[in-house]
Amino acid sequence: MNLANKITFARIMLIPVFIMLFPIYPEWLINKSAVIQHLDAYGIYYACAVFLLASASDKLDGHIARKYNQITNLGKLLDPLADKLLISAALILMVSQQYIYAWIAFAIIAREFIITGIRMVAASQKIALQADQYGKIKMVFQVIAIAAVMLNNRPFSFFTDVPVDQILLYLALILTLYSGYNYIKNNYRTLKL
């Protein structure tokens, strides 16, 4: 396994860490452990740091794979899978704590499943479909929006009463849906459906 794939694999391994740090602990457990009490109060910050670290590693593994010619079929499979698992985990956890509406999470996750399905059909036909610029931009907006929502609009709330986190979330949603539409439109004729 090359370095780029190891970084991608490490990103996948950070997802359970992110989930464990996200404060969704039952009351009986919080009352029994000082560590859990600490995580209940500050875990969202740790979870956000792990989420941002995992998200940043996406750029790193892609850069290394291209620079050192380490692009592999395993990497092509694991890299988008890691992104989807990380984003989906964050969205599901945020819905569970009522940080975001369930329909927003559903729309974003559904888009990811649809695009993954199209890629699987393409792969079965020996067709390589490349991610476009809109897909990369939507990923950046998703990461920033999710982090801002997890941090309850910080650091923006220090400067303004505008709910920047919610604005970013809706922008991420729009970009996610548009990039999905654009991806389907651009690749539909390539596939032998």
Rank of each mutant, 00 (worst) to 15 (best):
L191W: 09
G135Q: 03
M94R: 01
L168V: 01
T160H: 03
F9E: 08
A4N: 04
G43I: 10
V50T: 10
Y188W: 05
K138H: 03
A110Q: 08
A148C: 04
G117W: 00
F18T: 14
V95H: 04
L191V: 12
S179P: 03
V140D: 07
V143Y: 01
F51T: 01
W28V: 14
V140M: 13
L29V: 15
Q98G: 15
A56L: 03
A145Y: 01
I137A: 15
Y46L: 14
I184C: 07
Q37I: 10
R66Q: 14
T116F: 07
Y68A: 06
L169G: 00
D132E: 12
L39I: 03
F113A: 03
L175V: 09
Q125G: 10
K76H: 08
S55L: 13
Y99C: 08
I174L: 05
Y183E: 08
A47M: 07
D132I: 06
E27A: 10
L78M: 15
I104F: 02
I114Q: 02
D40N: 15
I104P: 00
A147E: 00
S96G: 13
R189V: 05
N152F: 12
V17K: 09
N186V: 03
Y68W: 11
L78N: 10
L85H: 10
A90R: 06
Y183F: 14
F158S: 08
T190P: 02
R189S: 15
K126M: 02
I144K: 05
D165T: 07
L168G: 02
R119A: 04
L173S: 05
W28H: 13
R66A: 12
K192G: 06
G43T: 11
I12P: 01
S179G: 08
I167R: 10
W28P: 07
E112P: 14
Y45N: 14
N187L: 01
A89L: 09
L21S: 06
F141M: 12
V143N: 07
N73F: 09
E27Y: 03
I184Y: 05
Y134T: 05
R11F: 11
F158N: 05
G62Y: 08
W103L: 03
K192E: 08
P16V: 08
R119L: 09
I24C: 11
S179V: 11
D40A: 15
K76M: 06
K185V: 13
Y25R: 01
L39V: 02
K32H: 12
T116L: 10
L14K: 11
I118V: 09
N73G: 14
A34D: 15
G135L: 02
S57Q: 02
K138G: 06
Y68C: 13
W28T: 15
I137L: 14
Y170V: 05
L173A: 04
C48W: 05
R66L: 13
I44H: 03
I108Y: 00
M94Q: 02
A128E: 07
S33M: 12
